[in-house]
């Protein structure tokens, strides 16, 4: 289907506005809420004189909107400041750590897509049967058990003294330890994340497919004598998978939250762990940059999903409103 340039332009404007709002929110939370950057850097026992000198250096005595504009413009020009805690440029820090988290995210997305969508379809086709019951039942566990519990459980089983096939945590890059080493550090975190996200996506696929299998056009397809395989694979799945694209992008949100916790469990030095460290050490520049980055990625993933969706779905010919 044709996606008009006007639609794309409009979406881009919305996204830019959205990103500006996000930056205001992030800046607002980090600036307005209690907790003073200068105090954090200098420690609790700094003299007031020292604090106010540093505040001036950091521009903290300026009016809030000037601070925001300064902050945003330096952010946009790539100078993301220096980490209080690591004493390194935030930009470098985030790029290195972000890449590691990206591996986790990409591999997990690939696994959950290839597992949960078929499972969802099967559960919907055998709606209300034992198979459906089994799949849905297990999915409840996936949704209800927090990732730090699953992760720890996996550690106990697969990295423990009894049956230790995988390292208990940490990270080795491919250049340092080869692909086997690299993989062995990634398997458990990815498995944990998969268990977490698989249930979400599978349940959503199932719900979508159950609705579609009840629809009038599926009845039409059956009543014209098509066999059930054609009905499901040609008529239902085609329509059922379209929203899944959007859902995948949305499940990226919970995946990112999951990554934070999972990296903590497996001592995996990615972006998530960096964020948690920065929270405990109140490393504001790192926090601001990494949360903004995550929100940007999430927003653009949703945009990409929307565009793919409009290409897949003949019903939508854009030009109209974004809703």
């Amino acid at each position: 289907m044709h996606v008009s340039n006007r639609y794309l332009a409009k979406r881009l404007v919305y996204i830019i506005l959205n990103l500006i709002l996000i930056s205001i929110i992030v800046f607002g939370i980090t600036t307005v809420l209690p907790g003073n950057a200068a105090e954090t850097i200098l420690g609790r026992y700094a003299t007031p004189e020292k604090v106010s000198t540093l505040e001036r250096e950091l521009g903290l005595d300026q009016p809030i909107y000037i601070q925001y504009i300064d902050w945003l413009s330096s952010f946009l020009t790539g100078s993301w400041g220096t980490s209080f805690q690591h004493n390194r440029p935030v930009f470098d820090l985030i790029v290195t750590r972000g890449a590691r988290s990206l591996y986790l995210a990409v591999i997990t997305l690939a696994t959950i897509t290839s597992i949960s969508i078929p499972l969802g379809i099967i559960a919907a086709v055998y709606h209300d049967s034992k198979i459906d019951f089994g799949i849905t039942g297990v999915s409840y566990l996936g949704i209800s058990v927090p990732e730090f519990v699953t992760g720890t459980g996996l550690l106990v089983v697969f990295a423990g003294p009894v049956f230790g096939v995988f390292p208990a945590g940490g990270y080795t890059s491919i250049s340092d330890g080869g692909i086997r080493q690299w993989l062995s550090h990634i398997v458990l975190p990815v498995t944990t994340l998969t268990i977490l996200s698989i249930a979400h996506l599978m349940r959503l696929t199932r719900t979508e497919m159950v609705d579609i299998l009840k629809s009038d056009y599926i009845r039409t397809a059956r009543l014209k004598g098509l066999d059930e395989k054609t009905v499901v694979l040609k008529h239902a799945v085609r329509n059922g998978l379209m929203p899944t694209v959007t859902l995948l992008a949305m499940s990226l949100g919970s995946l990112m939250g999951g990554i934070v916790v999972v990296e903590e469990v497996f001592a995996y030095p990615g972006l998530g762990r960096l964020i948690v460290d920065s929270v405990t050490h109140r490393d504001v520049p790192v926090l601001q940059a990494s949360i903004l980055l995550v929100a940007f990625v999430y927003t653009f993933a949703n945009l990409a999903a929307d565009i793919v969706y409009t290409y897949l779905n003949p019903r939508i010919s854009y030009g109209g409103s974004a809703r």
């Binding site: 009038d216 009845r219 039409t220 009543l223 014209k224 085609r238 003949p314």
Partner: peptide
């Protein structure tokens, strides 16, 4: 052969 009631929902929208 059967002709259903609601033509709008009875045809597969993506074929």
């Amino acid at each position: 052969a059967h002709v259903p009631q609601d033509p709008n929902t009875s045809l597969n929208p993506s074929l």
